[in-house]
Design a protein around this nucleic acid. Sequence first.
DNA 1: GGTCTGACCGGCG
DNA 2: ACGCCGGCCAGAC
Length: 121
Amino acid sequence: MMKAEKSTSKRKTTSSNFFEDVYEVTMLIPKGRVTSYGAIASYLGVKSSARMVGWAMNASHLNKKIPAHRVVNSKGLLTGKHHFTPPSSMQSKLEKEGVKVKKDQVVDFDKRFWDPGKELI
DNA sequence: GGTCTGACCGGCG
DNA sequence: ACGCCGGCCAGAC
């Protein structure tokens, strides 16, 4: 269902809109796949603002349905695991979904990488 | 209302 | 190969 937000061209009043977009995309990540902050940012149209995505993820821990553990940095490293409780839970969840993690790094990151801009069109 | 930070990214020394 | 730097945007103090 449309949210009827683009009615008036640009709507900057919805400041948290960015967060919702990030959450939506993150929740759309297929099981057993991972993506990067930059990929999400790029899909949202703010590829340069990958920091915002990661930052939005910080607030995602309030939304339990956000699989933030499926989001890693462009190198496939679990950089944000320190924000999990416990940090090892991030790797555990990934491995539970079939994603192998070695030394905080996603194995076969290339194959596990899920690009929202390409597959979620 | 200015300043700083932030789970990043890519380039440069 | 590795480390540091700036950029980018949005929220918190």
